[in-house]
Computed example of a mutant assay.
Amino acid sequence: MTAHTVLRIDSSARHQDSVSRRLTDQVIERLAPETVVTRDLSNTLPLIDEAWIGANFTPADKRSPEQRETLALSDSLIDELKAADTLVIGLPIYNFAAPTTFKAWVDLVARAGVTFRYSEAGPEGLLTGKRAILVVTSGGTAVGSEIDFASGYVKHVLSFIGITDIEVVTADRLAVDPEGTVNKAEEQVARLAA
């Protein structure tokens, strides 16, 4: 599957010496997309609040100008998702979970009637036909272990909104063997289908 448009999502608080950013660079280089849209979550997103919830649950044709403005960033983030063929997500594990900035992004893009809908069969994701590559890094948490509350969460959220073609590049337990861990992750990147 060729990636024409990649949405790159960085969630590391680090810019210098960030392993997730460096590996995400390599994934992008491997995919060689026509277009890359970058969303850096380290610049913090607002948390949803009562005004946001009120605007979100007001029917679109009945929203006030203030409510439309309240949802403008959420709409923009969702437009980025819709336009992308592939998501490349740099996901460091902080204290066993995804960074709070990533959770803030999820809260802004997981919207009933927009990115998923409820049906008689249960929730149905609306962003189908996309690929996601997670670049998961950690200092000591083994990805997929019982103390990893990040990678499973992100896979579930993506599937919930319709993105089920998910691959994981793992650079976990960097505090134990940084060089070996990065080398293994780079091998995984090299095996990714462009």
Score class of each variant (00 low, 15 high):
residue 49 D to W: 06
residue 148 D to S: 00
residue 41 L to M: 03
residue 19 V to G: 07
residue 151 S to D: 14
residue 42 S to I: 01
residue 182 V to W: 00
residue 92 P to Y: 03
residue 192 L to E: 11
residue 56 N to Y: 01
residue 79 D to R: 11
residue 3 A to E: 12
residue 141 T to Y: 02
residue 163 I to A: 09
residue 83 A to E: 13
residue 177 D to K: 02
residue 53 I to H: 00
residue 9 I to E: 07
residue 83 A to V: 05
residue 141 T to E: 08
residue 107 D to K: 05
residue 139 G to S: 11
residue 50 E to M: 13
residue 181 T to Y: 00
residue 76 S to Y: 08
residue 192 L to M: 08
residue 75 D to F: 06
residue 103 K to W: 05
residue 170 T to R: 12
residue 38 T to C: 06
residue 157 V to G: 05
residue 122 G to F: 06
residue 68 R to P: 01
residue 78 I to K: 06
residue 149 F to N: 11
residue 83 A to G: 14
residue 28 I to A: 03
residue 60 A to D: 15
residue 6 V to A: 12
residue 38 T to R: 09
residue 108 L to W: 03
residue 20 S to W: 05
residue 81 L to Y: 14
residue 45 L to I: 13
residue 116 F to I: 10
residue 9 I to Q: 07
residue 10 D to M: 00
residue 30 R to T: 09
residue 191 R to F: 00
residue 85 D to N: 13
residue 193 A to D: 14
residue 24 T to D: 08
residue 194 A to G: 12
residue 106 V to R: 01
residue 59 P to F: 09
residue 15 H to Q: 14
residue 84 A to V: 09
residue 143 V to P: 04
residue 78 I to H: 05
residue 152 G to K: 07
residue 133 I to F: 09
residue 188 Q to V: 01
residue 155 K to W: 08
residue 13 A to G: 15
residue 90 G to C: 09
residue 128 T to C: 07
residue 2 T to W: 04
residue 149 F to Y: 14
residue 41 L to K: 01
residue 93 I to G: 08
residue 179 E to P: 01
residue 169 V to Q: 02
residue 10 D to S: 08
residue 44 T to C: 05
residue 5 T to W: 07
residue 15 H to T: 15
residue 9 I to R: 03
residue 15 H to N: 12
residue 14 R to E: 12
residue 126 L to E: 03
residue 149 F to H: 15
residue 68 R to T: 11
residue 120 E to P: 10
residue 45 L to W: 05
residue 40 D to L: 03
residue 62 K to R: 15
residue 166 I to T: 13
residue 151 S to Q: 15
residue 149 F to A: 13
residue 49 D to M: 03
residue 142 A to E: 15
residue 27 V to R: 06
residue 10 D to G: 04
residue 58 T to K: 03
residue 119 S to V: 11
residue 55 A to I: 10
residue 97 A to K: 04
residue 151 S to N: 14
residue 16 Q to D: 15
residue 144 G to H: 08
residue 170 T to I: 14
residue 51 A to W: 02
residue 64 S to G: 09
residue 61 D to T: 10
residue 186 E to Q: 15
residue 190 A to Q: 12
residue 26 Q to Y: 00
residue 180 G to C: 09
residue 145 S to D: 13
residue 38 T to M: 01
residue 47 L to G: 04
